[in-house]
């Protein structure tokens, strides 16, 4: 039997191409004051997540310890250390959306997707995240699908958003 590649990206070393891309991101930004967040955003924009193998490189470039970089990654809700699903759906769980039925949408998502927040469906089609306000509070309830904000959502409209992501009915 062939050996199976480890699936956890945590143990995956950076390949040469990724290493090069990463240096291309870090080097021009390293000298700016307070560079860590901008660098982490740029890495996540490029790779879809912040691969743990990047941490030593970033730490080295900014003269920080790996623990400090890890501490920042784990502090902020936006940064993820594993790749998300093909689509990312963020449901607003905050008060203005609650007042317009966000809890019903939450129940609908959990039941149809069979996952909770911060989880990805088994087929990798969709990652579900909570978000606390998208600034669309007068046209609630609101969700963001792959960066696009959708307002005045009903369960019917949410269902068609899920259909558009190829989620099984």
């Amino acid at each position: 039997m062939k050996p199976v590649a480890k699936s956890s990206s945590a143990s995956n070393p950076l390949d040469a191409d990724m290493h090069l891309r990463l240096e291309g991101i870090i080097t021009p930004m390293a000298a700016m004051p307070g560079a860590l967040l901008p660098i982490l955003h740029a890495v996540q924009d490029a790779f879809g997540h912040v691969p743990p193998a990047c941490v030593p490189l970033i730490a080295n470039a900014l003269n920080l310890s790996r623990a400090e970089v890890h501490g920042v990654i784990s502090f902020y809700h936006d940064f993820r250390s594993t790749p998300p699903g093909r689509h990312v759906l963020k449901l607003c769980r905050a008060e203005a959306c609650q007042a317009r039925g966000a809890r019903e949408l939450e129940a609908q998502l959990v039941s149809r997707l069979g996952i909770g927040f911060h989880e990805t469906t088994a087929d990798g089609s969709i990652t579900l995240e909570p978000v606390y306000c998208l600034g669309n509070c007068a046209c609630a309830p609101t969700a963001m699908l792959d960066g696009t904000v959708h307002g005045r959502l009903s369960t019917e409209r949410m269902a068609s958003l899920l259909d558009s992501c190829g989620v099984k009915k």
Binding site: P33, G34, A35, L36, L37, P38, L40, H41, L62, E68, G71, V72, F75, Y76, H77, D78, F79, V131, Y132
Partner: peptide, 23 residues
Amino acid sequence: RIGAGAYICGEETSLLESLEGKR
């Protein structure tokens, strides 16, 4: 500069920490 999804960074001193690249 862009935040990273932490509500607490609306508190002024926490925001300054974040701008400096920290938790």
